[in-house]
């Protein structure tokens, strides 16, 4: 994984941790329209193949931003470049800039692990650790070094993930004993226990039944009161239901349209987007 920044210096030389260490979520609550993630001319290559082509996007705070588009269009690649998950792929290369607040996340002094605490991720398939429900959430606290009031913090995270009422009597049971939907909410609890600012979700409900999906969708809307949520989904109705902003990626790793969800779904500017969302191609 290499990064060739096309612009000179990041706008802020502080590390991710120091850039944000002085604020809690409550401090941030007064500026909901501020941009949290800004990508500028972002290209991603896998070897010779270009997966993203000059993506410019500003993701607003405490909103749900949905990334939609056909398979292979680059939406998951974009999601993963936000918290440098693409670092884990040897042949991946990134050009351009991606700012988390005022910090370019591809600067040499950014610790990807610290970055991923601030920008958590929930995957398509729930992946709880083969440990107790309590330990799954406590892990998130441990990586943050938070050792005081662990039980209180576990309860807070599980409540935040709308799971507490279903598991409060069996915190010692294995996370793998839970249903698929509960496992996914456990993973969300684990993610929010690290006190992130942004939660990335890669098709978080695609493996779930409609009832579990509805709970996750309700939860996503609740989470957006405190967190910035970016979600990749293949389910366009889901994007329409839960997101405030929609980004449409089409073939070739191009971001073709980005705007308010109600505008994109009622009056898209781009004819190809219209054809895609009405099902005429894709």
């Amino acid at each position: 994984m290499s990064h060739a920044s096309t612009t000179a210096e990041s706008e802020d030389s502080s590390t991710i941790d120091t850039a944000l260490s002085t604020e809690s979520r409550d401090d941030r609550s007064s500026r909901p329209d501020e941009t949290v993630i800004r990508s500028s001319g972002l290209d991603v290559y896998y070897g010779e193949d270009q997966a993203l082509d000059g993506i410019d996007m500003e993701i607003p705070a405490r909103k749900v931003t949905a990334l939609i588009g056909p398979s292979g269009c680059g939406k998951s690649t974009f999601l993963r470049s936000i918290n440098r998950m693409n670092d884990l792929i040897d042949v991946a290369r990134v050009d351009g800039d991606l700012y988390f607040r005022r910090k370019n996340v591809y600067d040499a002094d950014v610790d990807p692990v610290a970055l991923r605490r601030k920008i958590g991720m929930v995957f398509q398939k729930p992946n709880p650790f083969p440990k107790s429900i309590r330990d799954n959430v406590a892990y998130g606290l441990r990586v943050q070094g938070k050792t005081d009031d662990v039980d209180g913090r576990i309860e807070e995270a599980l409540r935040g993930a709308a799971l507490w009422d279903e598991v409060e009597d069996r915190l010692g049971e294995s996370g793998l004993e839970l249903s698929g939907g509960q496992q996914q909410r456990l993973c969300i609890a684990r993610a929010i226990a690290t006190d992130p600012e942004v939660i990335l979700m890669d098709e978080p409900a695609s493996a779930l039944d409609p009832v579990a999906t509805a709970k996750i969708e309700d939860l996503i809307e609740d989470l957006a009161r405190e967190y910035t949520v970016v979600i990749v989904t293949h389910n366009m109705q889901q994007a329409a239901r839960i997101s405030d902003k929609t980004a449409v990626f089409l073939t070739g790793g191009n971001l073709v349209e980005f705007g308010d969800t109600n505008e994109v779904f009622s009056n898209p500017e781009n004819d190809r987007v219209e054809d895609y969302i009405t099902g005429k191609f894709g």
Binding site: Q237, A240, S266, N267, P268, V273, I277, T278
Partner: peptide, 9 residues
Amino acid sequence: QQPVAGDLR
């Protein structure tokens, strides 16, 4: 069918 965009209109 959940029409959207031009179809919805």
